[in-house]
Amino acid sequence: MQSVKSIVRPDKVDDVKEALAKIGVSGMTVTEVRGHGKQKGHTAVYRGKEYQVTLLPKMQIETVVPDDIVEAAVQAIITAARTGEIGDGRVFVAPVTRSYKIRTGEREGM
């Protein structure tokens, strides 16, 4: 079981959701976040002062998938979220030791 966390452009969330659904990923948690990698921000002027906005709005999509579809999930996210421009985001994969379903108390994993 692996956690796949991706940070993508806000307007790519729907594409990613759809791509993940296609390979059988049924659940996910989506959070509005701000951050930056290599992407430069934009300049804003408020009340005569110029600001460099360096933390840009992104969406973070977290899902936990069985080991055998991790690669497929990562590839699905990359394909769906890519524009080829700086600022497309990142995917992080990390192991998850176990998880519980709250409604039933059912345990998954080791």
């Binding site: 701000r34 921000g41 300049t43 804003a44 002062k49 110029e50 600001y51 460099q52 906005v53 360096t54 933390l55 840009l56």
Partner: peptide
Amino acid sequence: VHAEGSAAQV
């Protein structure tokens, strides 16, 4: 404009 610190004065 949220996220304190997301902008720096130039």
